[in-house]
């Protein structure tokens, strides 16, 4: 039903409720017709159905599929009640978007790269192999999604000059810290706090040239991270992980052609919005894979990019 009867769109309310531009004003005009009017800057999150002209047809925020199915059916009935001037094709004219509030709009800089990031709780089989983990928290056993953005200068720094197998390549500190602070997090049950610069107790990333085939240079990444909320073994939240990866860069186009990596280790504790963690230290895995950026979901900015300067200059 969502595919055929609606135009489906997803958005991060943190940006939408703040942006002072055509899109933000249109969204708030719709949301103000519903129960969440954003008093005091509060969230307007939920599922909305409305017309292109901005008439709200329904609002719910519920996890039960049956409730949401009925909500969609009721919203379609409300849609059919609209006058023709509100619902027949091309009856409503929508022009190009005007001003864009750059403070609350994120775009990958030209020449940058998107890396999909997935986290999943893990268990060990009887023979010690990692396997998908289980937990009582609904959906907590599924992979989470986020994106790592590499800026053109990050990629340039990974392109070695005159590479030979065995050469060491500098990994920019800002990139190694960005990965640690913002992407080695347990976001399997919701939005976790990122690590502060001081909470990154240890972070090592080594890159070594593994092969050179024409313009394509493959690098092996190896490293270790220790991230904890407090110094000392009694820290209430932490992640101690090993990191292994393989990336490839094209020295002619200075583009990233491959970024496969995993971080795995013991995670413990939870954040204010990620309650329901398994007790004690339990295995968590984070996987990285280069994205072509074809799907809208791939182009969603990194969760931590809300604080843009902190994200791109993570080492400061």
């Amino acid at each position: 039903m969502a595919q055929t009867n609606f135009v489906a769109v997803a958005a991060d309310d943190w940006y939408q409720r703040r942006r002072q531009d055509d899109e933000g004003e249109f969204f708030r005009k719709v949301a103000d017709q519903g129960p969440r009017k954003g008093q005091g800057g509060s969230t307007r999150q939920g599922i909305y159905v409305f017309s292109a002209g901005g008439i709200l047809l329904g609002y719910r925020n519920h996890h039960d599929p049956d409730v949401m199915r009925q909500f969609l059916l009721d919203s379609l009935k409300n849609w059919q009640k609209l006058p023709a001037r509100e619902r027949i094709p091309r009856a409503v004219q929508v022009g190009d978007v005007g001003k864009v509030d750059r403070q609350y709009h994120r775009e990958l800089p030209k020449g940058g790269a998107i890396v999909n990031v997935y986290a999943r709780i893990l268990d060990r089989t009887a023979d010690g192999e990692f396997c998908p983990g289980t937990c009582p928290f609904p959906g907590g056993d599924r992979s989470s999604h986020d994106h790592l953005w590499l800026l053109p200068e990050d990629i340039n720094a990974l392109v070695p000059a005159g590479p030979k197998v065995g050469d060491r390549v500098n990994v920019p500190e800002r990139l190694a810290v960005r990965i640690g602070r913002f992407h080695l997090v347990d976001n399997t049950r919701g939005e976790p706090p990122a690590w502060s610069r001081g909470q990154m107790r240890e972070g090592k990333l080594h890159a070594v040239v593994d092969s050179v085939k024409g313009d394509l240079v493959t690098l092996k990444l190896d490293g270790a991270y220790l991230l904890t909320t407090q110094a000392g073994p009694q820290s209430d939240r932490g992640f101690e992980a090993r990191f292994l990866g393989c990336i490839a860069v094209n020295t002619a186009t200075r583009s990233l052609e491959r970024f496969d990596a995993v971080a795995v280790g013991d995670h413990w504790g939870q954040g204010p919005f990620t309650r329901g963690a398994r007790p004690g230290r339990t295995p968590l895995g984070v996987a990285f894979a280069l994205s072509r950026g074809d799907a809208a979901a791939d182009r969603v900015p990194p969760q931590a990019a809300r604080e843009w300067q902190a994200y791109v200059q993570a080492e400061r």
Binding site: N5, V7, V9, D12, Y48, V49, G190, P302
Partner: peptide, 18 residues
């Protein structure tokens, strides 16, 4: 296209946060 809009709006982008 003459269709209603279905907006999934969450704190944290539904397509790429958690």
């Amino acid at each position: 296209e003459g269709k209603p809009i279905l907006l999934w709006e969450m704190d944290g982008h539904p397509l790429g946060c958690v």
